[in-house]
Amino acid sequence: MTTVFSHGRLRLYLLKLLDDGPKHGYELMRLLENRFLGHYTPSAGTIYPRLQRMETEGLVTHAAAGGRKIYRITEAGQAELRQRADEVADLEADIQASVADLAALGSQIQTGVHGSVRDLKRELSEVARQTRRIRWEPSHRMSAEAPPYVPADPAAEFDRRLTAFVEEVRMLVRRANLSDAQLRTAARVLDGALDGLRRLLR
């Protein structure tokens, strides 16, 4: 069960906030704090990686203005919001319920904290595994002076690959003159890949 406080919903809620208009990171943090009755402000270390991921997924984009990043929802982001309209409605309803009914708020906090901390635990054990792998590689001695695990710029590299991927697929499909059924199959393959990524990134 997910609730207002859990990470899957945090992401949805970020999209929702950006749908109301472009905002900078700090503004988002403050709005989130209000949303959580002022009990919990997700830290910058929680919000920014999430915004970055959403950016790599093409759901949001940012523009630098006066030394700050202003985040803005993209069409893909709006599409995800529309797709998850039911969840957004639930989210709103939960929030309405929470202030009036203490017992419901209590259970919501319980499941929400549970979801969030389990998400985090999974995330951390994954990072620990990666760290272990890198430290155990034979090339470790050479990289001893470098920071532990920082590839060139994974975000930029991923962006580049994603663009290349889209172009390549489009070209392939055009060239092959596929039938409708084949096109549908191809679309399903894409959906599958997207689902895989969503699971990974969530």
């Binding site: 900078h24 990171g25 700090y26 943090m29 910058a44 270390g45 920014y48 700050r68 990043k69």
Partner: peptide, 8 residues
Amino acid sequence: VADEPTDS
């Protein structure tokens, strides 16, 4: 750590 201190 948030890489954009100016943002806050």
